[in-house]
């Protein structure tokens, strides 16, 4: 889904969102209340610089707009794959971005991720998957790895994988699969603004995804194992 259309549909009361190259940031009004908007566009790759740009914006929000909800708009093609990025310890930069998200959560901000473009592997982890709630809108694509690549690495015939992908949700790309695994809380097709207000009203910042995966039948072992170990 195109970013301007998404913004208009999410925030019909108005928004002041700037796009700087790939970085989306600003504020909007929702149900008469201000919300922060932060995200990415143009299928950017999330690398060390992107991580710092996003964390800088997050820290500004936490500092200057205490407690307001943060709507995270997700569109990326994954982590930036390059030797010079890994050389400077890319996972540390992504972990820093995750810590900034946790700081916001600790300080009472609600984090809602809206996947409207691509959301792939390490990019989705860095920005989206650690939100309180994760939703998709039409046009969203989530994946860890393409089936062709899985076939290559696991040495399984592609045809067999394609066949299995029709039966189970555990490995193949696609929002439907992620939803059944509990990786997306909701899939929206319309009425975005009202749905966003409704989800913001839910008073729960717990990680409920394993339970959702169990309910929806995609991930039936995780919640039970978590409970058994947690004791």
């Amino acid at each position: 889904m195109e970013l301007p259309i998404l913004l208009d549909q999410l925030f019909p009361e108005g928004h002041r969102v700037a796009v700087d190259d790939w970085l989306v940031s600003g504020e909007a009004t929702l149900g008469g209340q201000p919300v922060a908007v932060l995200g990415s566009t143009n299928h950017v790759f999330i690398g060390i610089r992107e991580s710092l740009a996003l964390s800088g914006k997050l820290l500004d929000i936490v500092e200057k707009r205490p407690g307001i909800p943060i709507i995270m708009l997700v569109d990326n093609n994954g982590q930036r794959m390059a030797l010079d990025e890994e050389l400077l310890v890319l996972p540390e930069y992504i972990a820093h971005l995750l810590r900034a998200q946790q700081l916001a959560r600790n300080n009472g901000h609600k984090l809602i991720a809206v996947v409207y473009g691509n959301s792939i592997a390490g990019g989705f982890i860095a920005f989206g998957m650690l939100a309180d709630r994760i939703v998709s809108v039409p046009g969203a694509e989530t994946s860890v790895m393409k089936l062709e690549a899985i076939a290559r690495v696991t040495k399984m015939p592609l045809e067999k994988l394609q066949d299995l992908a029709k039966q189970v949700s555990v490995f193949a790309p696609g929002c439907e699969n992620f939803f059944r695994m509990g990786g997306l809380h909701e899939m929206w097709t319309d009425d975005f603004s009202n749905r966003l207000q409704k989800i913001l009203a839910e008073d729960d910042a717990q990680d409920t995804r394993a339970a959702l995966g169990n309910e929806r039948g995609g991930r039936k072992a995780a919640q039970a194992v978590i409970d058994e170990v947690r004791g």
Partner: peptide, 22 residues
Amino acid sequence: GVRLEEANAGEIGSTEIMRAIL
């Protein structure tokens, strides 16, 4: 990293670990 035969479960599971660490 994520087990490819369980790519979606592994990826979501890894972020559950991250949240639990935080």
